[in-house]
């Protein structure tokens, strides 16, 4: 399976995500934001954490206009997999690939801590290795992770079982304690927590491995 990890000039979790993909058995290629196309045969695109263009104003808004973002959109339109983590989640909402927005944290401060997440659905190729309701420990590190969506959109996410993860103790004030959401076709996942920082016990948790393992298995079957 082939994974592409995008680097915007202010990405800073791109290497970490590439390492996590590789550890799960993916063949990984790095992609520069000025590229117009993804490498041939890419199965999943990783949009990493960081501060894509400094993100002094609206996080991810400029990245959504990068040349590579058009290629990511075409990939998703073709039914390709996309994983956006932290700033990557913000970019995917700015691109309109996922509904809702990430507002400033309710506490108005950056929050870095390892939190307990609940797996809200196991019915996706990102979460199938987990059990629904399973609690996993994954770090968060963000200033703008307060997921917000209109009532209708929230009802729809719930009705279509598209909430992937929720916080056991909400660090940012997000609606419905939402930590990650899926696209309509369940092949685009955006999440604020960093599974790539939880891939071995020495880092404090290996609970993030399940996500990459799910993806590997799910894509093999797809």
């Amino acid at each position: 399976m082939k994974a592409a990890v995008v680097t915007f000039p202010g990405s800073n979790c791109d290497r970490d995500l590439a390492v996590a993909f590789a550890a799960a058995g993916f063949e990984v290629q790095r992609v520069w934001h000025k590229d117009n196309a993804l490498p041939d045969g890419v199965d999943v695109v990783g949009v990493p954490g960081g501060f894509s263009f400094g993100d002094y104003l609206r996080c991810g808004a400029i990245a959504a206009q990068s040349p590579i973002s058009a290629a990511i959109r075409s990939h998703a339109d073709r039914g390709g997999y996309v994983l956006g983590i932290c700033n990557g989640f913000q970019v995917l909402t700015e691109m309109g690939l996922l509904p809702g927005v990430l507002m400033r944290n309710a506490g108005l401060r950056f929050v870095c801590r390892t939190v307990t997440l609940r797996v809200a659905t196991a019915q996706s190729d990102f979460t199938s290795a987990y059990a629904r309701g399973q609690e996993i420990r994954i770090p968060v590190a963000h200033h703008d992770g307060n997921y917000t969506i209109d009532a209708e959109g929230l009802a729809r996410l719930r009705g279509e079982d598209r909430i992937a993860f929720t916080y056991a103790e909400n660090p940012n004030g997000s609606m419905g304690d939402i930590a990650g959401v899926l696209s309509e076709n369940r092949r685009v996942l955006g999440m604020m927590p960093h599974p790539e920082r939880a891939t071995e016990p020495a880092l404090g948790s290996a609970d993030g491995r399940g996500l990459f393992a799910s993806l590997m298995r799910g894509m093999a079957l797809a």
């Binding site: 979790c13 970490d16 996590a20 954490g49 950056f110 929050v111 870095c112 960093h194 880092l203």
Partner: peptide, 11 residues
């Protein structure tokens, strides 16, 4: 220290 990212780099 929770306002500082202590884990970027995943090392």
């Amino acid at each position: 220290y929770e306002q500082y990212d202590s884990q970027v780099g995943a090392d």
